[in-house]
C-alpha cells in the first residue's frame, strides 16, 4: 500500500451513503422501507441516550468473549492431546469434521430446548461454532510439526512439558490461529443469528425487536453496529494476534 492510499477506502462508503441519501429523499420509497440516513443517526442517538445501544453491544461482546474463550482453550487443549496421540486423533478427526459441518446455527433449536432462551443458549451456539474448527486445526497443526524437532528436544533431555510448550504449541500455532480466525467468522454470524432467535438482548435482538415495530431506522443502527464492531475487533485484536503469534513463535514451514 502506498502513501495516501488509506483515504481511498473511504470513497465507496461515501458513494454508498450518497446514493442512499438520494434514493431516500427521492420520494419513491416510504420511510418504513428505506429510512433516511439522518433518521438512522437520530435513532442511534436516541438508543444511545437511553443506554440501550451500549447494553446490547456489551451483551453481544460478552457472549462472544465467553463462547470464543471457552472454545479456544478447550479446542487448543484437546487438539494438542489428540494431535499427540495418533489413535485418538484418527478417532476424533472424522467426528470433528462432521460436527463442524453442523456447527453453529443448526444447534439453535436444540440449545433452546436445553438451556431456554437467553445468554447460555447463545453462548453455547458460539462455543459450538468455533470449538470444532479450532480443535480440527490444532490436531492438523500438531501433526504438521516435523518429527525431527521433537527428537532433537528429546535428545537434549526435554520432557513432556517442554515438548508441549516449546515444540508442539508453537509449531501448531499458525494452524491454531487460522482456526480461531475462521471460527470467529462463523461464530460472529452464529451470534447474530442466535440473538435474533433465542435472546432478549444483544445487537441481533435489537434488530429483531425493531422489526416487530417496523422500525427500519433502528434495524439499520443495529446492522451498522455489527459491522463497526467487527471491523474494530478485526483491526484491534485478530490482525495483530495473527501477526505477533506467527512471527513470534511460528515455525513457518518453508515450501
Amino acid at each position: 500500500m502506498k502513501r495516501g492510499d488509506s483515504w481511498l477506502g473511504v470513497l465507496p462508503f461515501v458513494a454508498l451513503v450518497a446514493a442512499w441519501w438520494v434514493a431516500s429523499h427521492s420520494g419513491r420509497f416510504s420511510a418504513g422501507a428505506l429510512p433516511r440516513p439522518e433518521s438512522v443517526l437520530a435513532a442511534a442517538r436516541e438508543l444511545a441516550s437511553t443506554g440501550e445501544l451500549q447494553a446490547d453491544v456489551l451483551a453481544s461482546l460478552g457472549r462472544l468473549v465467553l463462547g470464543a474463550g471457552a472454545s479456544v482453550l478447550l479446542g487448543a487443549g484437546l487438539g494438542i492431546l489428540a494431535g499427540l496421540n495418533r489413535f485418538l486423533g484418527d478417532l476424533l478427526l472424522p467426528l470433528a469434521s462432521f460436527f463442524s459441518a453442523v456447527s453453529g446455527i443448526a444447534w439453535i433449536p436444540l440449545a433452546i430446548m436445553w438451556f431456554g432462551l437467553g445468554t447460555v443458549a447463545v453462548t453455547f451456539v458460539i462455543w459450538n461454532s468455533i470449538f470444532f474448527l479450532v480443535f480440527f486445526n490444532t490436531v492438523l497443526g500438531v501433526r504438521s510439526v516435523p518429527r525431527i524437532m521433537e527428537q532433537a528436544v528429546r535428545t537434549l533431555g526435554g520432557g513432556h512439558r517442554v515438548l508441549v510448550l516449546q515444540v508442539f504449541l508453537p509449531g501448531a500455532l499458525p494452524y491454531i490461529v487460522s482456526g480461531i480466525r475462521t471460527g470467529l467468522g462463523f461464530g460472529w454470524r452464529a451470534l447474530i443469528a442466535a440473538e435474533l432467535i433465542a435472546a432478549t438482548s444483544g445487537l441481533g435482538f435489537l434488530i429483531f425487536d425493531a422489526s416487530h415495530y417496523f422500525r427500519t431506522d433502528r434495524i439499520l443502527v443495529g446492522i451498522g453496529g455489527i459491522g463497526i464492531l467487527w471491523t474494530l475487533m478485526d483491526g484491534a485484536i485478530l490482525g495483530p494476534l495473527e501477526r505477533r503469534t506467527v512471527k513470534r513463535w511460528g515455525t513457518v514451514a518453508e515450501p
Binding site: 477506502g9 465507496p12 435474533l196 425493531a210 427500519t216 446492522i223
Partner: peptide, 23 residues
C-alpha cells in the same frame, strides 16, 4: 479502495440483514 468496503459488508452477515429484507 474497495478492500475496507468489502470487508465491512462481509462481516455484516446476511442474517443481520434478514429483518430488513423481510420488510
Amino acid at each position: 479502495a474497495f478492500t475496507p468496503f468489502l470487508k465491512f459488508f462481509q462481516s455484516l452477515s446476511g442474517i443481520a440483514w434478514l429483518p430488513m429484507v423481510l420488510v
